[in-house]
């Protein structure tokens, strides 16, 4: 029997190796992966590539006559020239909606995680429940809520917060409200998942070490909930930027977003320009996501 020096600094209870999930080698993994991966390849990857190539087709073609690849970069220039305004508007609306979602969603997620006690599950169900009523039907009900004869407009007029000819419906406000409403659960759920993992004793330790409630939140809770905040922001911003339902149902022609234009161009058969706009939207989003994730300093997505 050999004798060694001081024992390995025993900090943790047991070796980490003991509780890691067993990962099997061999072909089974590939076989399990194959059908799904194939599906995503054919119906996501290949289409994306097709979309990029379509965006470079000669815009003179049509569905009937077919398109020819002419590396027509002009499609991008045309698209941005003609629809730059809608582009900017989409990003601004999506940004406003995301900020509104954070302002509404963070306290809600926080309350569910730390203040709800035995009502936690019920509150979670309540967050998801409105989801099950059709997206479009709910959006339509905002038409009624924000309508000129609606309770909200009447109240605001009585309070003199809205002029006598003021509207809520068919304004940018209505569109942002709709976006905020529709994507709020996407903000709340990842935030909740992140907050729930935080040991409340960490915050107590913060208070013990002379942090005011605000400082404790800023220095402890907020940084620890960052992965959820990042995921929630992405899950809100991305679909909001591409949405056109809210702009169509709650807005006017002056609130049209890029999604409306892409949809209409596809509907009209102007595939190359529509594709160019889609690719541009995707590129802008990828760039913004990349910058945001770098700034937020988290590598973990979802």
């Amino acid at each position: 029997m050999s004798v060694s020096a001081a024992h390995l600094g025993g900090g943790e209870q047991q070796q980490a190796a003991a509780v890691e999930p067993p990962q099997k080698r061999g072909v089974t993994g590939y076989i399990l992966l194959l059908p799904g991966a194939l599906w995503l390849t054919i119906f996501f990857l290949v289409p994306t590539i097709t979309l990029v190539s379509t965006s470079l087709y000669d815009p003179a073609g049509s569905v009937e006559t077919g398109y020819s690849m002419t590396w027509h970069w002009q499609n991008y220039v045309d698209g941005i020239r003609d629809y730059g305004v809608q582009f900017g508007r989409s990003l601004v609306y999506a940004l406003l909606a995301t900020v509104a979602c954070i302002l509404l969603g963070y306290p809600l997620a926080y309350a569910i995680a730390f203040k709800s006690g035995r009502w936690k599950n019920l509150m979670l169900v309540l967050v998801i429940a409105p989801f099950f009523t059709s997206f479009l039907v709910r959006t339509l009900s905002w038409q009624l809520l924000l309508g000129d004869n609606g309770f909200l407009v009447e109240t605001l007029k009585t309070l003199q917060l809205l002029g006598p000819d003021g509207h809520l419906l068919a304004t940018p406000f209505a569109v942002v409200t709709g976006l905020t409403y529709n994507f709020l659960p996407f903000m709340v759920l990842p935030l909740y998942a992140s907050l729930e993992k935080i040991d409340p004793r960490l915050v107590e330790a913060g208070h013990d070490l002379y942090a005011s409630p605000f400082t404790a939140f800023r220095k402890i809770t907020l940084p620890l909930s960052m992965p959820g905040l990042v995921a929630g922001t992405l899950l809100t911003f991305i679909p909001a930027a591409g949405d056109y339902i809210n702009a169509e149902l709650l807005g006017t022609p002056t609130t049209r977003m890029i999604g409306n234009e892409i949809q209409d161009l596809f509907g009209a058969g102007a595939y190359p320009v529509a594709a160019a706009l889609s690719v541009t939207l995707m590129a802008v989003i990828v760039a913004m996501v990349f910058l945001y994730v770098r700034r937020a300093g988290t590598e973990e997505l979802v």
Binding site: F44, P47, I238, A241, G242, I262, A275
Partner: peptide, 20 residues
């Protein structure tokens, strides 16, 4: 690869498929 479709706006997913 699995994450990307969730991170793509629906309009892009839909138009890609239509293009295909």
């Amino acid at each position: 690869f699995v994450f990307l479709p969730m991170a793509s706006p629906e309009i892009v997913l839909g138009s890609s498929l239509l293009a295909l």
